[in-house]
Design a protein around this nucleic acid. Structure first.
Length: 310
DNA sequence: GGTCGTCAAGGGGTG
DNA sequence: CACCCCTTGACGACC
């Protein structure tokens, strides 16, 4: 059994800053000519940085990565008219073929505004716009990237909110539906809630280990784990897990800079139940540095090598 | 060169 | 209903 480790959005080692961006308020202050110049410059820069990061990842044997949603600034703003695909066709293709050549797994995890079950009915088009954006850039790269979502709101009670989710999920085009993965969250929907919905909708479930700790289910993780893996049986890619450590007792849900070895060691005993490969996304503020440190600890402490970590 | 308020958007909790 | 917090990092205005 093989486990690939991945990280989120930015390499701290090779880049100082995150995806460059601009807010709509600032954008609007510019003349048409300036808007175009500024926006194109940012997009070019971000795409160049993405290529840099992917290269760095391959060099360091990291084959799993989450692309930041802010890769293309303002792409999902309703007033935005600039085309983010055609003028950058060459870059998209280049990135896509690099991902393919090195068998990288990349995915997306949009922020809280990508919400399928809002009680505000007119909010749905906004969510759809975000999903379309992610699909468009996946298509431009030629890579079937998955999109990780939370179930979302529980306004009107969980039962009502789940109904809204199912109703709106059916309204999402099939070409996007089949990219969606659902993750348990730290406040509302537990592992059990998410697992039930995933089984009903035949959607693979992403287990977030820290969220389960903050927002526990009636049974233990060990008991749910085989069922979670089972939601992936129709997929060609390995199940995905999110792993992080809490900053402190008071802010349990808040990510710390690095992964606590104790936390990870505990999870390895659960992981050993799996008979198939698994990909684990390390969510830590120190990003790739946290991944590399964890990997060193794995090689140092885990001597019986039942699992091959990459 | 450093600091601090701002950012398109929703949800949830409080009083 | 009003208000604040959640959480994120970059940007830009200001000193």
């Amino acid at each position: 059994m093989k486990v690939r480790l991945g990280y989120v959005a930015i390499s701290k080692t090779i880049l100082e800053s995150y995806c460059h961006t601009i807010t709509y308020t600032q954008f609007k202050k510019l003349s048409m000519k300036e808007r175009e110049q500024k926006w194109y410059k940012i997009v070019k820069e971000n795409l160049k940085n993405l290529q840099k990061i992917l290269k760095y990842n391959v060099k360091n044997h990291i084959y799993f990565f989450r692309i930041s949603q802010t890769l293309i600034p303002l792409a999902t703003h309703p007033e935005m008219t600039f085309d983010y695909i055609k003028p950058f066709q060459k870059e998209w293709k280049k990135i896509g073929s690099y991902i393919e050549k090195h068998h990288l797994r990349v995915d997306f995890h949009p922020d809280q505004f990508c919400l399928l079950n809002s009680a505000k009915e007119d909010y749905f088009p906004n969510t759809l716009r975000i999903l379309m954006y992610l699909k468009n850039i996946s298509d431009a790269m030629g890579i079937p990237c998955k999109i990780i979502l939370h179930i979302g709101s529980r306004e009107g009670g969980k039962e009502e909110a789940l109904k809204r989710f199912k109703k709106n999920f059916q309204k999402v085009p099939f070409s996007i539906q089949n990219r969606i993965l659902l993750e348990n969250d730290d406040k509302s929907y537990t592992v059990e809630d998410t697992l039930n919905l995933c089984n009903e909708l035949k959607v693979p479930m992403v287990l977030d280990v820290l969220h389960h700790k903050c927002n526990p289910s009636p049974k233990t993780l060990k008991e749910y784990f085989p069922q979670i893996l089972k939601t992936w049986e129709r997929e060609k890619i390995p199940p995905k897990i999110h792993f992080s450590s809490s900053l402190n007792q008071k802010h349990k849900w808040y990510h710390s800079d690095y992964i606590s070895w104790k936390d990870f060691e505990k999870f390895v005993s659960i992981l050993e139940q799996a008979h198939e490969d698994v990909d684990i996304m390390i969510e830590a503020k120190a990003k790739d540095e946290a991944l590399l440190r964890l990997r060193r600890q794995i090689h140092f402490y885990l001597t019986d090598k039942k699992i091959h970590f990459e």
